[in-house]
């Protein structure tokens, strides 16, 4: 296995390990984000009577807006966490 990278840098096995670790954490983060997003918007938008297996018009547009808003909240809190020091 070659450890040469295409960017004129030599990546040691340790660097590779670190990169894989970061990628893994990023994946875990995204999977968790997706799961929480799905759960939240299901709870908020889907009628619990379950008469029909299809999403109706209202549910569809609710889900679309819900996802968009969730994304916005994620961005907001991300900014909040990265800007101001967490309050003591």
């Amino acid at each position: 296995m070659s450890t040469k990278q295409g960017f004129g840098q030599t990546a040691t096995p340790k660097d590779v390990e670190e990169m894989v670790g970061m990628a893994q954490q990023e994946m875990e983060y995204r999977v968790e984000l997706f799961n929480k997003l799905t759960q939240s918007c299901f709870d908020k938008c889907i009628e619990k009577k379950f008469k029909d297996s299809e999403l109706n018009l209202g549910e569809n547009s609710c889900v679309d807006r819900c996802v968009h808003k969730y994304w916005q909240v994620t961005a907001m809190i991300g900014q909040l966490l990265s800007s101001g020091r967490p309050p003591m």
Partner: peptide, 24 residues
Amino acid sequence: LRMYNSLVEKCFGQCIDNFRRKTL
């Protein structure tokens, strides 16, 4: 990362309740 995710989930759950618009 986990706490970031659950913080978003928690506050979204508490604060966002209408979906008439797609922006906050």
